[in-house]
Every structure is written in structure tokens, then in C-alpha cells.
Design a protein around this nucleic acid. Sequence first.
DNA 1: CAGAAATTCCCCTGCGCGGGGGATGTCCGC
DNA 2: GCGGACATCCCCCGCGCAGGGGAATTTCTG
Lengths: 213, 213
Amino acid sequence: MDRIRVALVDDHHVVRRGVRAFLESFADISVVGEAASAEEAFEKLEPWQADVVLMDLLLPGGMDGISATQRLHELGEKPRVVALTAYMDDARVTAALRAGAIGYVRKDALPEVLLEAVRAAGRGQLFLDSFAAEAVLNDSGVGNELTPREREVLLLVARGMSNRQIADALTVGDETVKSHVTAVLGKLGLSQRGQVALWALKHGWVGLDELVE
Amino acid sequence: MDRIRVALVDDHHVVRRGVRAFLESFADISVVGEAASAEEAFEKLEPWQADVVLMDLLLPGGMDGISATQRLHELGEKPRVVALTAYMDDARVTAALRAGAIGYVRKDALPEVLLEAVRAAGRGQLFLDSFAAEAVLNDSGVGNELTPREREVLLLVARGMSNRQIADALTVGDETVKSHVTAVLGKLGLSQRGQVALWALKHGWVGLDELVE
DNA sequence: CAGAAATTCCCCTGCGCGGGGGATGTCCGC
DNA sequence: GCGGACATCCCCCGCGCAGGGGAATTTCTG
């Protein structure tokens, strides 16, 4: 049987080299390439001919790991995506799976779990580590009950804009914005707009870089 | 010459295993232990007899990497600490160095840079990657012009507490808290208390876990 | 078509908070 | 001792915003 061709997408060079060293110590796995960003991954996709892409969801640059997973999934059967991420939050797990990831492993999982996930992905089988599996159960689709307009408002609120500023940005009345904000706070179970930024951060709606400066 | 005894402290098991695999491929380095938290590291400190501790600054649990570095440094000459962290922000670099770290490497640096940092630390020499060196220059000591009391207030504001709640927590009047908050906002160049949480997060004063839930 | 959902706008109330003053007492260092 | 930093508390003003109503419009869906 041919070896599983794995490509690594992670912005941390040290982590890539480390994971490569780990995975290549197994005879049935071959690491065929690395990329530090989603954009770089798509450039190198052709020569890789990878069976499995090990994708960090927290990526710098324009495209995050979820979007990249989505696009890879739309390309067809291969490569299959295994999400590898530091932080575990229920929403991100389900988001990754919705985007077409076939596996999900935390960076603090046992390395053997990662190995198993890669092998499962090579066989086309779903694999979630225990935390991810639990997350799927826990996740009540947080944020998904928001309407499109409410999501827009959410992002602007998270950026620290006032109702008036949001109203101008969306060219609607500030009373309208107030309605949306109230709806968002209610659906998210928050009581102050200041918490919205942290909520958005924790649930992967925005990155820290987008919020500060 | 004896091999450099290195211990790894990082909450991501996959990363630990990977870095271990990478470092152990060099004959002059021996990885003598691993820990997933600062607390675990101090428990295992004795048997390790490590020359160098490779420390992730972003650690779960009660003690973060900065505090752990500080305590290790107070123990004496060894082990020396090399900080290894994902995010680069000027304040965190200088905080780590003030705490006694002898090296600083980003996870997205070339693995060879990490190798060089470990070897330099083994010789007792300072080593910063290019980004860290730049950070030292850039850092104007952000947040250091705050008084102790203002720092206390800062942390509570970041946690989303109201002036009244903070006043109760510190057993002072709410007018007093208002004065401190105003001072903090002024010194930090912010205009809304909601931005304080993000500022604190970005500059390493608190972790995301401490802020949400 | 009928109903639901989404979006828009409006009224009112009360509190939190940012910005502007200032005052008092303590402690430390020059 | 005298200045300066720090911490504490006080007053005023005005805006922003959460929470409570309601209502009109369009758009989607059954």
C-alpha cells in the first residue's frame, strides 16, 4: 500500500518542522509539503498531490483555515482536511466540520491521536479527538441563530463602534441598529456590548488583529 | 562535551513531541523532559537537571510562562529559559526578558533559529530572533507607566466589571475607581472601557481564558 | 395566498460612563 | 521642608446604551 501523502499548513515553522519529524518517523506516512498560509497552500496544491492536508485553523493573512478548508472541500475528494488547532471551542469545531474537514485534533492531544487522525483521513474516515467529539454534542450552533444583518452588526460592535457609527456605516437609522444590537445581546446571552468583542474573539468570528489597531 | 539537557514546557502535546523529534535529531542536544504546565514543570524540575528550559509563554492553569520564567530565574544559574511563543508582541518580549529569559524565539521562526537559541542558551549566551530583537527596540514600556493601583483596576475593567463592582472588590468608593479608570484610559490612549480587555489581551496582561467565562 | 421571519423605525426610562473640574492626606526622595 | 507621585473622594454635565414597549415594511416560505 502506498504511503499517505500529507501536507502541513501552519504559520509556525517550528511546529511544522516538529510535526513533520514526528509523522515521518512512521513508515506509512510521507510529508510531501508545507505551507505557512492558506494562500501558499493553494499555490502548491498541484505538485503536492496530497491525500491529507493537516490544517491549522488559525492562520495569518487573508484566508483563515475554515475558509481554506471550505475551498479545498469544494475541489473534490482529495485532499482531505484534518484540522489541527490550539484552542478548542465548540463553534470552531462544528464550523470546521461544516466546511468539510474529515478530522479534528487539538494541539494538546496525544501525538498518537494526531497520527490516528491522519491515518483515518487517509482511509477517508472521519476522526475526532475526544474533546472535538464532545464539542459537537455541546455546540448548540452558537451564533447561527443570528440573522445576516445581526451578524453584520455583531462584527461592527465587536470593533468598538457606537450605534451611531454603525448606523452611518450601514446607512440606516440608529434606532434600527439599537434593535439589532439588543437582539444580538439577547441571543448571545450577553448584557454589555463590551463583551461582544470577546465573544466574537472566542468563537472565531474575528481575529485579535482585526480588533486591535 | 556533554550534550545540552533541554526540557520542554508547552501545553500542546503535539508540539512538544514535534519539537522533541526535531531537537533530538541533533547529536549535541538531549531532551530530558516535558511538562504541559508551569506547575508540572516545577514538580519535575529536580529529576530533569536541565540546562535549558524551552518555555511557551501562553500556558493554561494558574501560572503563565512569564511568572514561571521569573521563578526559574530566581532559583539561580540553571536552568536557563528560552521563551518560545506563537504571538509576537513587543510587550511580551520585554516582559519575558525582564523575567530572566535568555532567549526568545517565535514559533514561526526557522527551526534552525530555535536550534541556535538552544545552543546559545546552553553556552549561557543571550539569543533573540530578529523579530524579538526588533521588539525590544520598539517597546516603549507600554503599560509600565501605570501605577500599581491602576494596574489592579485595569485587570478588573478588562474582566468586564462595572465601576461599582470594582469599587466593592477593592473596598473603595466608586468615584475613586472612576478616577483610576480615567487615568488608565488616558495613559493607554483608549476612549472606551470595552477596549481595555482587548488591550490587556494584546499586551499579555491577561489570557483569553481569564476574560471569557 | 397566508403566515413567518427579517428589517426598518419609533417612544420612553434610567443608569453607566467619559470628560471636565477640584480637594484631601500620605509617603518618598531630593 | 518642599515638591511630586499616589490614592482617595467629591461635583457637574451630557451622551451612550440596555431594556421595555410597539409598529410598518419587505422577503421568504409553506
